[in-house]
């Protein structure tokens, strides 16, 4: 039974919009008829800390948490955070990688180094890695804050779900005045 369950782990930095992205994803999955659970941590870690969200779907989901080494898709919003959670990916899983780099505090104050060549390391460990320049596409869409929607667009290409569902849920979750740029961002991500 558990083999029917699909696991998507979102990893990013507080403030990047990972929680809204996992919200949209989970809602789309429910609309598509799946049982779905998502789990994440709010509170202290959101102050610029490392943030993850577990999304699991299938005919019947029990645990809201993904078992270590069993994520089917690692949905990474930032280079270092994607690399940090690579051990959560199963053998043969896929990575969706946003090429953005956000310096953690110890690096920003010069007491630690940001690891070099992360994208290459991820691609070496997981050949099925899809790299997206989320920030650049978001700027093309007209607002750098739409990176999360660009990435959802890219993710939508990796999941067998109707495009219509995505567009409906985004229209429902995003305030109307930001909707045009978010729909543009979704399309750019989906076609990237």
């Amino acid at each position: 039974m558990t083999s029917e369950i699909k696991n998507i782990l979102l990893a990013g930095v507080g403030g990047q919009g990972t929680l809204l992205a996992s919200e949209v994803l989970s809602e789309v999955l429910m609309q598509a008829g799946y049982d779905v659970k998502k789990s994440e941590i709010h509170g202290m870690s959101q102050r610029g800390g490392s943030v993850t969200s577990h999304v699991r779907f299938g005919s019947k989901v029990h645990s809201p948490l993904i078992h270590e080494g069993q994520a089917d898709i690692l949905f990474g919003f930032e280079l270092l955070e994607t690399y940090r959670y690579l051990p959560m990916l199963r053998k043969g899983g896929q990575v969706l990688l946003n090429e953005q780099q956000i310096l953690p505090a110890p690096v920003a104050i010069g007491t630690d180094q940001y690891p070099q060549g992360i994208a290459a390391k991820i691609c070496a460990a997981c050949p099925a890695t899809r790299v997206v320049d989320g920030l650049n596409l978001a700027l093309q869409a007209g607002n750098q804050r739409t990176v999360n929607t660009v990435l959802l667009g890219a993710l939508s290409g990796m999941l067998d779900l109707e495009e219509k569902l995505w567009l409906e849920v985004i229209a429902h979750k995003v305030p109307e005045r930001f909707l045009p740029e978010n729909l543009a961002a979704f399309a750019l991500g989906r076609n990237s």
């Binding site: 102050r47 490392s50 690579l86 505090a105 940001y114």
Partner: peptide, 18 residues
């Protein structure tokens, strides 16, 4: 259970901040 991937290096932490 051994993870399918193990980091060869130590990664910088990302603690929360004001």
């Amino acid at each position: 259970q051994a993870a399918p991937f193990i980091h060869p290096e130590e990664l910088p932490g990302r603690p929360p901040n004001m």
